[in-house]
Amino acid sequence: MSLPRRLAAPAVLTLFLVAVFVPFLSLLSASIQPAGTPLTGLEAPHGLHLENFGTAWSKAGFGRLLLSSGLVAVAVVPASVLFATLAGYALATMEVPGGRKIFGYLLLGLALPAEVTVIPLYYDLRALGLTDTRYGLALVEIAAFMPFGTFWMRSHFATMPTGLIEAARLDGATSWSTLWRILLPNSRPAVTTLGVLYFVWCWNQFLLPLILIQDPARRTAPAGLGYFTGEYNVDIPSLAAATLIVIAPVVAIYLFFQRHFIRGVLDGALKG
């Protein structure tokens, strides 16, 4: 292999590393600057002003906001993964009546922007008395996440060896036993990857919580950050500290599950 080809992969990885690390470093540097300092880019910190995090936490009430986001995520992620797994398993391994049409309708959901549906969803939830509730927001997000999750799990189950399913059926295993005892133990990376993606999407949702939840006591962290930004738009260090508080759970979840996540993505790429 020639030297340019050998250097191509490290060069590309280094470029992506810089593209991700520099903005994060700029955000971290801004968060420990003196409060009210005007910043226009990456600057060396003038001391270590951790009080910005305390100010952002108390002024925006991030304790309540993070709890609200956590409750929504706890409701959305397990339910979405469960429903997507069941739907993907059925569409990939069973002769579901109208299965192709159902899958086609689900794929249309991937092309439908959330901005198109948010106003009708608001009026529907208001008619059901579910506006300003975490339950209503959770139901909407579960429905919004189903198209991708079903596509992901169907693709995964469709590429698994058919001999496993046929052998289980010959041994008298039911469809439930085949899924829970045979397929799922071999699907841990795919399920974990889907769960991490769902958590990131659920945590970062901004438009849906902003429209569907007007009660400040039930706002999620990104929506609360939006209101905090409007109030403290001239205090860049406090805004940077607040942003780091909001993204910290996402980073922690990704670092905890990174091996399963990377394996799931690579397995999907290789099988595809």
Rank of each mutant, 00 (worst) to 15 (best):
S2D: 15
A8Q: 07
A9P: 09
T14C: 10
L15Y: 14
L17P: 03
V18H: 05
V20I: 11
V22F: 02
F24D: 04
S26T: 02
L27H: 01
L28F: 03
Q33Y: 04
G47I: 09
N52C: 00
S58M: 05
F62V: 02
G63H: 10
L71N: 05
V72A: 06
V72S: 03
A73G: 04
S80Y: 03
A84K: 00
A84T: 05
T85M: 00
G88S: 06
A90D: 07
G98W: 00
R100T: 12
A111I: 09
L112D: 12
L112A: 15
P113T: 09
V116C: 14
P120W: 08
L121H: 01
Y122K: 08
L125Q: 07
L128E: 11
G129L: 01
L130G: 07
A144S: 15
F145T: 06
P147G: 03
W152Y: 09
H156V: 04
T159C: 05
E166K: 15
A167W: 05
A167F: 07
G172D: 06
S175A: 15
W176F: 06
S177A: 14
R181V: 01
T192Q: 04
G195A: 15
L207A: 05
I213P: 10
R219E: 12
R219I: 04
T220V: 10
G226E: 02
G226L: 00
G230F: 11
G230N: 13
E231S: 14
D235V: 04
D235P: 05
I236K: 05
A240P: 00
T243L: 05
V250D: 04
Y254A: 11
R259S: 11
F261K: 03
R263Q: 12
L266P: 09
D267V: 10
G268M: 02
A269D: 01
L270Q: 04
K271H: 14
